[in-house]
Design a protein around this nucleic acid. Structure first.
Lengths: 345, 345
DNA sequence: ACTATGTAGTGTAACGATTCACTACACAGA
DNA sequence: TCTGTGTAGTGAATCGTTACACTACATAGT
């Protein structure tokens, strides 16, 4: 079938072991330059490729990492795994990639281990099913909004967004979000900012666009009746839709109602009113996840978690920049919003 | 180290072969219900996991597919690989994932084969480096804009976009694109539409935003001097930036200059002026790539390629829908633009 | 009682790469 | 000549799983 080490050895008139020593590049055994050349020649001539299974069976490292995300519905993270994969490739690791939504996380982890991954990176933003990483025989690196190896302080992000609106003088600030039943850290941050200013969020300011079927009425009431003058959205997509609806209603942003988003999607500056938002540092997260994995692979010492501080992007939707701002500070070619690059330390 | 089949067999008081027959689930050999139960019990008790390397070494199928894209810079495709992976998981295949940009494609393919993938899916949109899939020992499925197993007829897409603008009465239609040196199929489609209408695209209508450093002047000249009244952009991101620049210049879209995009990014309907665009059917592409792979794995018959016809999304930027359109036909919850689902045949 | 037929189970040779333990040989120093 | 030291090479066991070829035993048919 396929060309094996034995074939190469026979072709080069050497033993299998000599061929192995040369082609594995381990340098554990001295081989003369002449035979080395003969072996290489035979290998390329026959088109030899190591059989990874054979190598692994002997106990060799697989140089592969399992990468797993349990929810693909969050657009801002759609490229996170791509970035992780690129970084892993740079570190000379193969990526075994799986998207789980709904299915058993444990089953995927078992499959990864069965295939010999050296470690597993798990991105678990959003709703969290039960699973235990305690007994996992390989190191794991977890990314989620709390209690993880790498996390973004989204509570602080929402806090800063709400606080920013407070500093603009707003008092009646609403929060637009889907009520999925779990604890919403962004909601908590929003609440903290208001509480700090001596304001208690009333129920009608909590604009649940899910599972509420009549979300338009909810928004209408908040704006028309409850005197809401600013709205924090739990993500940019919702903020964009919200602004569209407000514009449809003839309500001006930010003059009548200010809006703040969350995520830092690349399109925020292209909206009718450039959206102020909290940036998710996707590239930095990807880099940190991989670095953390390398650290865990090298030593089993417990490493303190990294919590990334959120950063604001100020567009016009919060009321910061005047309509007539003359300078154009963007380039048609640099489409990326996030300032982070992973070339730092 | 890890618990092996031998351990399980010893624990259940049977031979390795019996354990193998039961746990591999092949059903090649009759095993009594009693011993079968004993073996399962021992396996779960010891926490047995098949060693994939051992299985593969014997010549078993790896049930893994290599997935490879050579350019991650096109945002609309950032979720394509995610969808492919999900579909493969549904078909009970593992995904080995690699992003190549700049590096050797051949090296990645070799690595995949070395790791025993049963097939390779390659998404090669954009610039194409030299490589040959002729001698690849496993089936490959290629996605790119021409001469592939699955492709989207982007020439026709650009043709339809330009033709649509012609039907609106525009005669001086420009094309905004980055000139990367290769053949631009969208440019060709744009040209064909104009030629069919008896118009020859003059040079100053070809708005090269790359490598041109002074792209603003290029746009200014087209609009102010050359009387361009409509612009086709080669992607939505550029179209969005273009509309922002036009708005900055005080030029109204679509009244003064109509704009057409390309890609069908999810945000197009949220822009100041909802962008008319050509949809890239990402989900359908993902589904077809996987189905094509399954077909190739089952039979080595040559299968004719699939060329997907592009579909237009008409927003307001082309001048189709009046400003005052009263109905709101979107839902804040359904963020997806593409109508395709992969549940069809 | 003797041969078929079938069921339930075991031993073991692969698969391909690695690496330990070993040999063969050359050459230097005493 | 004998021993020590180093270089260059080989043989074979090993990893975990699979599946072929086999045995042992029971039951049925004649």
């Amino acid at each position: 079938m396929s060309v094996t080490l034995k074939d190469v050895a026979r072709h080069a008139n050497v033993g299998v072991s000599a061929a192995s020593y040369v082609l594995s590049g381990s340098g554990l055994h001295k081989v003369s330059e002449a035979t080395r050349a003969r072996i290489f020649a035979a290998a390329t001539q026959l088109g030899y490729r190591v059989n990874h299974a054979g190598r692994m069976l002997h106990g060799g490292k697989s140089r592969s990492i399992g990468v797993l995300e349990n929810n693909r519905s969050i657009p801002v993270f759609s490229e996170l795994m791509q970035l992780v994969c690129k970084e892993l490739a740079f570190l000379d690791y193969q990526t075994l990639y799986q998207v789980v939504d709904g299915g058993s996380l444990q089953a995927v982890i078992d499959e990864f281990i069965s295939r010999g991954v050296e470690g597993i990176i798990i991105a678990d933003y959003g709703f969290t099913p039960q699973y235990s990483l305690e007994h996992c025989p390989v190191p794991t690196v977890l990314f989620r909004s709390f209690d993880a190896d790498v996390s973004v302080d989204i509570e602080a992000g929402a806090y800063r967004a709400a606080r920013h609106l407070l500093e603009h003088g707003h008092r009646n600030i609403a929060y637009l979000y889907p009520d999925t039943g779990g604890t919403d850290l962004k909601l908590r941050g929003y609440r903290r900012a208001l509480a700090e200013a001596g304001i208690e969020a009333v129920d009608s300011w909590l604009l649940k666009i899910f599972p509420t079927p009549h979300w338009r009425e909810v928004i209408d009431r908040a704006v028309d009746v409850d005197g809401v003058t600013a709205i924090c959205a739990s993500c940019d997509d919702y903020a964009a839709k919200l602004m569209r609806y407000l514009s449809f209603r003839g309500i001006r942003v930010p003059d009548d109602v200010a809006v703040f988003g969350y995520d830092g999607m690349r399109y925020v500056e292209d909206l009718a009113v450039p959206l102020s938002t909290v940036i998710q540092p996707v590239e930095r997260i990807a880099y940190l996840l991989c670095r953390r994995m390398m650290e865990k692979l090298e030593s089993s010492l417990s490493i303190p978690p990294v919590i990334l501080a959120p950063e604001l992007y100020l567009g016009r939707s919060c009321g910061c920049r005047p309509q007539s701002k003359p300078a154009i500070d963007w380039s048609i070619l640099s489409l990326a919003l996030n300032p982070q690059t992973h070339t730092e330390s």
